[in-house]
């Protein structure tokens, strides 16, 4: 987990233009006297165990029942929005270019790298269908799904919200995101669909009806927006 703070990272101050800084011992700065961990970009990090993730999800489910998925998604959205502002600052500081002018794929990889270093997993963006107004994100080693194991349903609502919030801010259009395939459903990796709300609502409906990720991909490519 990370929260924006003002903790300065000494290595970064010494090497502000160093881009390959994701090695564990370089990315994190352990401040022994304060008992804090800062990352390269000055975010405060907290190391948690899988028990924390389980406790968070199960505790939430106990409190709000089925609405816990929506709550996790909302938390993700807010996190993504906040993080896009934070990212705007550090990206420009590190590369001397505004995010709007940068090569998109490079920009997105750069955004996700701190998450990878923090243990949220690696990703792969599939923009093949961007002309049709949607794109896929494949996530490997989701911290949430790997913790919960095979529970037969998608569990990465926090990630879906994170992507929705981040991309909504970055492209300045209201976007939604849904996980259409999950490690916790016995798949090898998680797959998220990002797009305008009506598209995502349609996908949610199909998913609910038992459609698989490839069913959903096919229907979207064929231009369906509802059942």
């Amino acid at each position: 987990m990370d929260t924006p703070s003002v903790s300065a990272h000494k290595l970064r101050q010494q090497h502000p233009q160093k881009h390959s800084h994701y090695k564990f011992s370089e990315f994190f700065q352990f401040n022994a006297t304060e008992g804090t961990i800062a990352d390269w970009n000055g975010s405060r990090n907290i190391i948690t165990s899988e028990h924390f993730i389980i406790g968070l999800l199960e505790g939430l489910e106990e409190e709000v029942g089925a609405a816990s998925a929506a709550v996790m998604y909302s938390i993700g959205v807010e996190w993504g929005k906040q993080d896009s502002l934070f990212f705007d600052q550090w990206f420009e500081r590190e590369y001397n270019i505004r995010p709007q002018q940068a090569n998109l794929m490079f920009l997105l990889e750069t955004w996700w790298w701190p998450f990878t270093a923090q243990g949220w997993g690696r990703w792969e963006i599939d923009m093949t269908d961007r002309q049709q107004g949607f794109m896929f994100i494949n996530l490997f080693d989701s911290a949430v799904a790997r913790t919960l194991g095979d529970v037969g349903k998608p569990v990465c609502y926090l990630y879906a919200g994170l992507y929705a919030g981040f991309f909504t801010e970055m492209v300045r259009k209201q976007l939604s995101c849904i996980e259409i395939q999950c490690y916790s459903m016995g798949e090898t990796y998680c797959k998220f669909l990002l797009g305008a709300k009506d598209r995502i609502d349609a996908a949610a409906f199909w998913l609910n009806e038992g459609a698989t990720a490839s069913d959903i991909e096919n229907r979207l490519r064929a231009g369906y927006t509802s059942s």
């Binding site: 881009h19 390959s20 994701y22 370089e26 090569n103 490079f106 790298w113």
Partner: peptide, 18 residues
């Protein structure tokens, strides 16, 4: 191993992006 952690894994995603 250090090379992989300090450069190659990161640079791999950058090379893929381009």
């Amino acid at each position: 191993e250090g090379l992989e952690e300090s450069l190659l894994l990161w640079f791999q995603s950058i090379m893929r992006a381009f």
